[in-house]
Amino acid sequence: MAVARQKPFVIRHMPGFPTLAIVCFFALYMPLVPLVIYSFNAGNNIALWEGISFRWYVAAWDNELVKAAAVRSLVVASFASFFATILATMAALGTTRTRAYRGQTTIYALINQPLMVPEIVTAVALLILFAMIKEATGYHGYAYLIIAHTAFCIPFAYLPIRARLEGMDKTLETAAADLYARPWPTFRRVTLPLMLPGIFAGAMLAFVISLDDVVITEFVKSAGQDTLPTYMLGQLRRVITPEINAISSVLLLISVILVTLIFFLSRNKTA
């Protein structure tokens, strides 16, 4: 029997959709291809192919400045993502596990503000603020970088944790209370284990964001505090060799691995 049935709207079936999708993916990933290819260039030029070689990876590895910047990046990213995750976890609990209160939406907006404020504005603001503190205290250490990175990482850690908590059945916590668990054991035995994948995802996202940051770091760092991205920025002002490609490719690899992990952790299996 031929029943005239209205087709449901499926965007994949719209004319031109496959073409548009391919163009988008091409634009996103195409620029990365020569970057990675030329990191294996045997010659000194980033655009002139002279054969395959690992010499620029070796050069980057042997470059003490690169090594120091890489270690600095990892240290700052580790501390910043650690603190940001703790703060973001508390913020996520505070915005999902309480009775609705006045100003809840405002607080939600404030937590995510760093995503909206132009990074250059934050950078300038921090430059001025930290300059005043440096003047007053004489301290010029890494704390400024860690504090700045922690601040802008919070929303990135917050979003996956909050999503995880919102997808979690609140009856589970009620059930724990019903089964004689006081608030702290309820958190430790029920809420925390169930939100853990969200916390890991948030921490990794914060780590990647901190690792890749240029603008704020450039403004906040003291002399000799280059992270890998700001070191690379500095190199661009001089002679560019495929060493930059090699460093970029390694950073890319690390980001891809972390983002893949985040993807697997954020998939909502239980709860």
Binding site: T171, T174, A175, A177, D178, L179, A181
Partner: peptide, 17 residues
Amino acid sequence: PYDRPVNTVFQNYALFP
């Protein structure tokens, strides 16, 4: 609730997954 010797079977069971 944790101070009452009263327990509940929930509509959606609320088992810890």
